[in-house]
């Protein structure tokens, strides 16, 4: 999956599920401090990402290390690459 496609799809999740304006969705945005998600919102985010990308990430320990939107782009890219192997 192309990098830009992943970025667009992740951004769509934030816009559709959390109604966050597109101009706030920059790779360096901290999902807690800048976008305002909390630990409960992360559960909703994971569910939305699973649905959007048809992947299972709920029990993936790497989710806990995610801090920025860029981390999510990279994480999804990684998951997709692993899935294709």
């Amino acid at each position: 999956m192309a990098e830009q496609t992943i970025i667009n799809m992740v951004n769509e999740v934030f816009i559709d599920s959390f109604e966050i304006p597109a101009d706030k969705l920059v790779p360096e945005a901290n999902i807690f401090n800048d976008l305002g998600l909390d630990s409960l919102d992360i559960v909703d985010l994971v569910v939305a990402l699973q649905k959007k990308f048809a992947v299972a990430i709920r029990d993936d320990e790497r989710v806990r290390t995610i801090r920025t939107l860029g981390d999510i782009y990279n994480f999804i890219q990684l998951i997709k690459t692993e899935g294709n192997k």
């Binding site: 959390f18 109604e19 305002g36 998600l37 919102d41 909703d44």
Partner: peptide
Amino acid sequence: FSPFKLKNHVR
């Protein structure tokens, strides 16, 4: 409202 939208609305 979603919980996220509600909390940010009140904030």
